[in-house]
Design a protein around this nucleic acid. Structure first.
Length: 154
DNA sequence: GCCAACGTTGGC
DNA sequence: GCCAACGTTGGC
């Protein structure tokens, strides 16, 4: 099983939103590296840290689970969508996504600063300067450590 | 609001 | 295929 970190701006879609809807298609990813992770590497049952970016403060807010195989992101075909891609066709889709299912919401956000202050978690990609990828692979040891610091068991 | 980092676009 | 210009991300 692989572990991941997925970023979302809480103003747009937060862990609380995911908790409400229970499951959500991760649409709108328009970066090839992030797409490849979803399309090629994510498997149903994989677990992801849910990270709030552009938040005050930013940090990990909970855990989600990959709940589907990958399939074409329908918003790429929708002319009314802000994620519409004129170069994508139904025959040759460009963008793929998976569904995520809510697993846990942390009692308290695990802030980015706490990740940076931790000798183990500070190795994570999200702590490195200039890492803008919205989906990154995470070592199991980092995933486990984050849950421990958050005081959450799943 | 600033700005560093970095991905994408398009002219050549 | 190079690379400058441009746009976006996201912490601060």
């Amino acid at each position: 099983m692989n572990h991941w970190l997925i970023k979302s701006e809480p103003d747009v879609f937060s862990i609380q939103d995911l908790e409400k809807v229970e499951q959500e298609p991760w649409s709108g990813v328009r970066n090839y590296q992030a797409r490849n992770f979803m399309w090629r590497d994510m498997k149903p049952g994989d677990l992801a840290l849910f990270y709030h970016s552009n938040a005050k403060p930013p940090g990990i807010s909970g855990v989600a689970k990959v709940a589907s195989a990958s399939y074409p992101d329908p918003t790429q075909f929708d002319k009314k969508s802000e994620y519409y891609d004129p170069k994508a066709t139904e025959e040759k889709p460009r963008w793929y996504l998976v569904d995520f299912e809510h697993i846990a919401t942390f009692n308290e956000l695990l802030p980015l600063q706490a990740l940076k202050d931790d000798p183990i978690l500070s190795e994570m990609l999200v702590c490195q300067k200039g890492t803008r990828l919205s989906i990154t692979p995470v070592d199991k040891k980092h995933f486990t450590r984050a849950l421990k610091l958050a005081g959450t068991k799943i």
